[in-house]
């Protein structure tokens, strides 16, 4: 079977003046349609850079990204990103923020009324329709991130890229949003690539967990299949041996074999 999304021998070096740093080294990864893949690693290992390369916001130094066998090297709505800090435009309302993408993506294929309905449909998916006329600074952090997710979903991306989407949220809100994302994945069957540094989050949400070694020259250290049946329930998993085993594997990788070494 052909891979849906393929990261092919990606290297990334940053050059500043005479100093060259190799951030990513020979990253190979294939993701199937409908799969939920997490990339986990210590901070500074280049996982956000990797996501930016997939999104097309940063170019790879060598290698490339193939989506449905076509190379992608510039940003586009087929790889919508949910940014860590929501990145909603503060001068637009919740509705207008989602509409911005919808108007561009469906300019030709949907009428004005259809686009409006589509925006509301996506706001409903994340339970934010009630706040459609509010501005981002009038809603909570969790709500902002919901709108960010709605904006990305509304572009009907082939791959949904989540860049530490819950990193800036408190633990309770984060759990709530994780459940929402799981439900959306269940319902819509999106292909999702998520960056995270939270082990529980990775095990709970993913079909596969990609563990990155520490930078510089970060590689994929190990890929772990998470063989847990869906739909998954947070409370039931807490005592599930399969869950605990996966969690153990990731923790061992991160804290024993690839401990984060603070630069002196």
């Amino acid at each position: 079977m052909q891979a849906y999304l393929k990261l092919d021998h990606i290297d990334k070096t940053f050059t500043r003046g005479n100093a060259t740093t190799e951030v990513l080294k020979d990253i190979n990864l294939t993701i199937d349609k409908g799969e939920y893949v997490s990339i986990i690693g210590h901070s500074g290992c280049g996982k956000s850079t990797l996501l930016n390369i997939v999104a097309g916001l940063t170019g790879a130094t060598r290698g490339g990204v193939l989506l449905e066998n076509r190379e992608v090297n510039s940003p586009g709505p087929d790889r919508a990103v949910v940014f860590q800090n929501h990145s909603l435009l503060p001068w637009l309302t919740v509705y207008e923020n989602v509409k911005l993408g919808v108007d561009k993506v469906f300019a030709r294929t949907k009428t004005r009324a259809e686009r409006d309905a589509w925006v509301m449909h996506n706001l409903n998916l994340v339970q934010m329709a009630h706040a459609k006329d509010k501005r981002p600074n009038e809603i909570s952090g969790g709500m902002k991130q919901r709108v960010g997710i709605a904006r990305a979903l509304a572009m009907e991306p082939k791959v949904l890229l989540l860049d530490e989407p819950f990193g800036a949220l408190d633990a309770l809100t984060r759990a709530h949003l994780q459940d929402s994302v799981m439900a959306l994945h269940q319902k819509l069957g999106n292909t999702i690539l998520m960056i995270t540094h939270d082990v529980d989050e990775a095990v709970l949400l993913s079909d596969r967990i990609v563990m990155m070694t520490n930078g510089p020259s970060a590689r994929i250290g190990e890929v772990l299949e998470v063989p847990l049946a869906r739909p998954r329930k947070r409370l039931e998993l807490a005592t599930n041996p399969g869950y605990l085993k996966c969690r153990q594997r990731v923790l061992e990788f991160l804290y024993e074999r690839h401990r984060f070494v603070e630069a002196a």
Binding site: L57, P75, P77, R79, V81, F83, S87, G101, K104, M155
Partner: peptide, 14 residues
């Protein structure tokens, strides 16, 4: 202008 807004514009392809 924050890079975030530029990224949003790039993804949406304004």
């Amino acid at each position: 202008i924050p890079q975030d807004y530029r990224n949003v514009a790039a993804v949406v392809q304004l």
